[in-house]
């Protein structure tokens, strides 16, 4: 009877040692699984971030394009206005030289008049009548 008990204890002892080794290796499996799950979660988060980043990245260019579009039309009307303004004076100036009279140039003289003033023949701003006469 005692021998049977001892034999049973020995057998149980042998089984208990094996379960210790298994117990040591068992926690490793859940840990690995947990790590994999974490990695999967991290990858999913990264993927989500990447998608979000793409979405965010696409929006700003659209906004930039929208902002750039109004600038180009704004410059075009300004250029058109300048051309129209410049064209009018050029046409007017082209017709002015036609009025230049023909004839021999007046001698360049500085005349000291009796009233104390000076008259420069080449600086006259309006028509001039030179009247040559004598007191006798």
């Amino acid at each position: 009877m005692v021998g049977a008990i001892l034999a049973a204890v020995i057998v149980l002892g042998a089984c208990g040692g094996g379960s210790d080794e298994q117990a040591a290796s068992e926690p490793a499996e859940p840990a690995t699984t947990s790590t994999a799950a974490t990695s999967a979660t991290t990858s999913a988060t990264t993927a989500t971030t990447a998608v979000s980043g793409t979405t965010v990245a696409e929006d700003p260019p659209a906004a930039t394009t929208t902002t750039a579009a109004p600038e180009e039309p704004a410059e075009a009307p300004a250029t058109t206005t300048v051309v129209e303004t410049t064209a009018v004076p050029e046409t007017t100036q082209a017709t002015q030289p036609v009025a230049v009279p023909e004839g021999p140039p007046i001698p360049a003289l500085t005349l000291e008049l009796d009233d104390g003033t000076t008259f420069v023949t080449t600086e006259a701003t309006r028509p001039v009548l030179y009247l040559f006469w004598a007191e006798w």
């Binding site: 023949t121 006259a124 028509p127 030179y130 006469w133």
Partner: peptide, 29 residues
């Protein structure tokens, strides 16, 4: 307005040898 051409140099510059003579000038011509 008038002036006296004391040495007749103005008459000579305008090639006027006797008087009266009128010369109209516009824009220096």
């Amino acid at each position: 307005r008038w002036l006296l051409d004391e040495d007749n140099s103005i008459f000579a510059a305008f090639e006027v040898t006797y008087q009266p003579v009128g010369v109209f000038a516009v824009n220096g011509v």
